[in-house]
């Protein structure tokens, strides 16, 4: 995630980032200690759709939770299990992925990327184990796949998170 930092003279400091899933988030640290988080419209990055203001104390509390100091998350988005060089990984298809609305056969995944798809979780939580070649990949799907580390990495980058990823 690229974090852009800018001074706002007379107000404070601004941190801006677009997350892997394509959400634009802006964090403002006011000189008086307040923090503000703005969330922008997915289609119009000029339009703030919601924002929250925290006092200094609240912000510290939130930071602890966000940073995993209070409760360590069971890795939801990404788990890497290593067996020497063999890796299992799962990735959520973001909107820039070139895989959206194409089948596994279309993409010729096994031959072109040297990975195999083990399972596919739809956004509505329904899952397909060992999905067939005619399975359609859609935005928001979570793909579980395995392969050698370098192939997994390459596939993650070029196939599933085509832009803004990493």
């Amino acid at each position: 995630m690229d974090m852009r930092e800018v001074d706002l003279p007379g107000i404070g400091r601004k941190f801006e980032a677009v997350t892997r899933r394509g959400d634009k988030v802006v964090l403002i640290v006011h000189d008086d200690g307040r923090r503000e988080i703005h969330h922008y419209d997915d289609d119009d990055f000029d339009e703030s759709i919601s924002s929250v203001t925290f006092t200094d104390e609240e912000a510290r509390q939130m930071a602890g939770i966000l940073g995993g100091l209070v409760y360590k998350p069971k890795d939801l988005e990404k788990i890497e299990l290593e067996l020497d060089d063999l890796v299992i990984e799962w990735v959520k298809i973001n909107e820039d992925s070139i895989a959206i609305n194409r089948t596994i056969a279309d993409l010729d995944i096994r031959n072109r990327y040297d990975i195999s798809i083990i399972a596919l979780l739809k956004a509505d939580k329904s899952k397909t184990l060992n999905p067939g070649a005619d399975t359609l990949i859609q935005k928001g799907d979570t793909i579980v796949f395995s392969g050698e580390r370098q192939h997994v990495r390459a596939a993650t980058k070029t196939l599933f998170l085509t832009e803004g990823g990493g």
Binding site: G10, I11, F45, D46
Partner: peptide
């Protein structure tokens, strides 16, 4: 400067892209 800064904070526009330029011009 006083009114502009107040209005930007009140209207929650501090995070907007143009705000950087506004404060820069100020």
């Amino acid at each position: 400067s006083a009114i502009v800064a107040k209005v930007l904070v009140d209207l929650r526009r501090t995070g907007n892209t143009e705000t950087e330029l506004i404060l820069g011009i100020i």
